[in-house]
Amino acid sequence: MAVDIGIDLGTASILVYVKGKGVILKEPSVVAFDRDSNEVKAIGEEARLMLGRTPGNIIAVRPLRQGVISDYTVTEKMIKYFVQKALGRRTFQKPRISICVPSGVTEVERNAVQQATFAAGARDVYLIEEPVAAAIGAGIDISKACGNLIVDIGGGTTDVAVISLGGTVVSTSLKVAGDDFDEAIVRYMKKKHNLLIGDRTAEDIKIKIGTTYPLIENEAMEVSGRNLVTGLPKTVTVTSAETERALQGTSNQIIEAIISVLERTPPELSADILERGIMLTGGGAKLRGLEEMIEERTGINTMTAEEPTQVVAIGTGEYVELMSARREL
Rank of each mutant, 00 (worst) to 15 (best):
A138V: 01
I128V: 14
E275N: 13
R297K: 14
V125W: 00
K190L: 14
G6H: 05
G317A: 12
E76N: 01
P28K: 12
I216E: 15
S70V: 05
M78T: 06
A177T: 01
I254A: 10
S260G: 12
V261N: 04
V74A: 01
E46L: 02
D34V: 10
D71W: 00
A116E: 09
L49S: 09
G155P: 11
R297H: 11
G44T: 06
G10F: 05
Q310V: 03
P266M: 07
G156H: 05
D204H: 13
D272G: 07
R245L: 09
A86G: 08
V18T: 15
T239N: 03
C100W: 00
A60D: 02
Q248G: 02
D4L: 07
A12G: 14
K21Q: 13
A145R: 06
K26C: 10
V40H: 09
S251M: 09
S173P: 00
L287D: 06
G147N: 08
P95T: 08
Q93L: 12
S173F: 02
T235W: 09
S251G: 04
I99K: 01
N111P: 00
G22T: 10
L329G: 15
V40D: 09
V229G: 03
K190M: 15
P95N: 02
I43Q: 10
N194C: 08
E242Y: 08
I209G: 08
I128W: 02
T243N: 11
V3M: 12
K192D: 07
V18D: 05
T250N: 07
K286T: 08
K85D: 09
M279H: 11
L51R: 02
N194W: 06
D71P: 00
L215Q: 11
D152P: 05
L280T: 12
R35P: 00
L25A: 04
D199F: 10
G104A: 08
A313C: 11
A246T: 07
V101S: 07
A60L: 03
S37H: 03
T11F: 07
G56H: 01
T157L: 04
D124I: 07
S270C: 04
I163L: 05
L269D: 06
I294Q: 07
Q66E: 14
E45F: 05
D179H: 00
R327L: 11
N218G: 06
K175I: 00
G20H: 12
L228V: 11
I79T: 02
A202C: 13
S37I: 03
E291W: 06
V261F: 08
S164H: 03
N57F: 00
A184H: 04
I24M: 10
I278K: 10
G155Q: 08
G22W: 01
D152W: 01
L149G: 06
V16F: 06
R35C: 09
V108Y: 12
I300P: 03
M293Y: 14
V113D: 06
I278T: 12
E295N: 09
E39S: 14
T157G: 08
A325L: 13
D182N: 13
D159Y: 04
E275P: 09
L25S: 00
Q253G: 08
T211F: 02
I163K: 04
S143T: 15
G198Y: 00
N57D: 09
E109Q: 15
M50K: 14
G210V: 03
G315Y: 13
K85L: 15
G315N: 12
P266G: 03
P55Q: 03
S171P: 00
R96K: 11
